[in-house]
Design a protein around this nucleic acid. Structure first.
Lengths: 134, 134
DNA sequence: TGTACTGTAATAATTTTTATTACACATAAA
DNA sequence: TTTATGTGTAATAAAAATTATTACAGTACA
């Protein structure tokens, strides 16, 4: 996994902390990454219905619903990678009985893992996560 | 996560499939990656006590113990990344109340996730995983 | 009608991953 | 005892992925 979950939850926490519209530049300043990257992730969160945006002057971003109705799992799902356990770039040797089948078995393992992860992350809401800050 | 878990479990499955010593070149041929990368991962698995190696002519690698005593979790632990959920490359803004604390809360989330993952992967042995191949 | 935003494309820089080359060292077998 | 075949590891190069930057069209408030 790359830094996307970290960026997404940082964004969501900042929006949770203040109901006013926040600009991508402000968010980028807290996360300390390029504003364009933030806008890309905001665009993704928007697509997943987690946030709202407002165009034009004094525009910005806000949560699409109350923080207690947003689970960490839903944020994770918005940015989740193809494979939690990672995947080979090269195709294994199809002439090898193990190589031929390993990917499908790995994929099954991955699905199991994703399920327990999402279960766990589904137990916490953004509101609860935010309460941990002091 | 990169391709390391995929490589490690592929290696372990191949060693499980045949008790004879296997060379890094043979393993690399099934995985379809460079033999040096395989030897690096073998070196790591060796360090974690999961395999044995034999130097010299006709040398190679074999499992360090019966496959039913090796869990998938122990293989995962040998290659696990710093953060399952990923981590930012840049330090968040220390002047921001959220930015200042986000990393420690993320780290806690990560620890929770790792625990449920390891629990889940601990339920399956290499022997059971290997049985799924036909 | 200017100003301050979002939204997105194109491109460059950086970092990470993977591949390759090279070679010291070990041991079985001819 | 010499040769062949393997491990172990360092150094370097190539490729791929991630992050940063520049640029600008479009929107809406004042």
């Amino acid at each position: 996994m790359n830094g996307r979950f970290s960026i997404a939850i940082h964004i969501m926490t900042l929006l949770c902390a203040d109901d006013n519209l926040q600009s991508s530049d402000y968010l980028a300043g807290s996360i300390n990454i390029n504003p364009v990257l933030v806008r890309k992730e905001l665009s993704n969160l928007l697509k997943h219905g987690l946030i709202n945006s407002q165009l034009g002057k004094n525009g910005g971003y806000s949560l699409a619903k109350p923080a207690k109705e947003i689970t960490i799992a839903s944020i994770y799902k918005a940015v989740k990678p193809n494979a939690i356990l990672g995947q080979a770039k090269n195709e294994p040797n199809p002439a090898c009985p193990i190589g031929k089948q390993i990917n499908s078995h790995l994929k099954a393992l991955d699905a199991d893992i994703e399920q327990v992860m999402v279960n766990k992350l589904g137990n916490t809401t953004l509101a609860e996560f935010y309460k941990r800050f002091d």
